[in-house]
Amino acid sequence: MDEELLDDLLARVSKFASVLGISRSELKIYSTLLLEGQSSARDLSKKLNISYTKIYSILNRLEDRGWIRKVGRRPVSYEAISLRDLWSNVKKMLEIRVSQLEKEFIEPLSSMIDSASAYTVTVVPPSSLKRTLIDVLNEPSKKYLIAISFPELLDEEIYQLIHSRTFTSEVKVIVQKGIKVPENPSIELKVLDNMFGSGIVTSSSVLLVIKSHESLSSIISSHRYLVDIAQVYFNHLWQQALSIGTNP
């Protein structure tokens, strides 16, 4: 296992994972088990230079989350679940956290403001996603921040609509590496190796698209708080992304 490469990956991912309550140590232990196979707590403790007491605490959390499982007896060893199962697990965790934020913060806060100013969060069915993309891009906005990680979202009609926005607004587009985009000097375009999902952020709304069970799921919201968070996160990705033609 390339330790330097893994440490670099964990350094980039851990900032986002911490939002979900996932520590870097948990990511490190899961990755080690996935890449190197079954291991006992004692061997992990020695290899990763983590105290024996702490390693058990972390292993218990990972087991509770369903990321790892025990195998064998005396001594007990641990093995990692597959990446596919892990991704499904993380998406469920994200859905739970978003629902929890809505229930414990957004809903109580919205009850304190005028009903006319209340937020909206709408789940978009897959059959309506294309229409919703077009509607969002047709919203009057000073800027359009667009992240595309699924090539099926960027067909000719959507591309031409994005291009038309450049005549009146600031347009920034990040595409995931491997997605082909026609050269166009009027569009600020960057590329990123990997992204969590796709989305569009305007001055007044945010559309988030993720892939679930091989289909695209999405939500759209006009809540100011969520729009601000989306803009901050997009700008974070923009700083990490490379301009087209730039060597890493």
Results as ranks from 00 to 15, higher is better:
25 S>N: 11
26 E>R: 03
19 V>Y: 09
77 S>H: 07
48 L>D: 03
118 A>H: 14
74 R>A: 10
132 T>M: 15
135 D>E: 15
27 L>I: 01
88 S>V: 08
50 I>C: 09
92 K>N: 09
87 W>G: 06
106 I>L: 15
19 V>H: 10
33 L>P: 02
135 D>Q: 13
22 I>N: 00
33 L>C: 03
57 S>N: 13
49 N>K: 15
32 T>G: 04
103 K>E: 15
77 S>G: 09
75 P>F: 07
108 P>S: 06
89 N>S: 14
117 S>W: 10
125 P>V: 04
19 V>N: 09
38 Q>S: 13
29 I>Q: 00
60 N>H: 08
51 S>W: 07
70 K>C: 05
80 A>D: 02
79 E>A: 07
128 S>H: 07
108 P>A: 05
120 T>Y: 12
105 F>H: 13
98 V>M: 13
116 A>L: 14
19 V>D: 04
134 I>C: 06
32 T>R: 08
79 E>V: 09
73 R>H: 13
119 Y>F: 12
17 A>E: 00
128 S>L: 14
16 F>E: 10
17 A>W: 00
21 G>D: 02
89 N>P: 04
128 S>K: 14
57 S>F: 07
125 P>Q: 10
112 M>W: 09
111 S>A: 13
105 F>P: 00
38 Q>I: 07
47 K>R: 14
140 P>G: 04
44 L>K: 01
100 Q>T: 10
128 S>F: 06
98 V>E: 11
53 T>D: 13
108 P>Y: 09
136 V>Y: 02
36 E>R: 15
112 M>A: 11
62 L>S: 02
37 G>H: 12
46 K>S: 14
20 L>Y: 04
82 S>W: 07
25 S>W: 01
137 L>R: 03
106 I>D: 04
72 G>Q: 06
49 N>A: 10
31 S>C: 06
67 W>H: 02
95 E>L: 11
20 L>G: 02
47 K>S: 09
76 V>F: 12
22 I>T: 00
12 R>Y: 06
80 A>K: 00
45 S>A: 14
34 L>F: 14
135 D>F: 08
114 D>Q: 08
34 L>G: 00
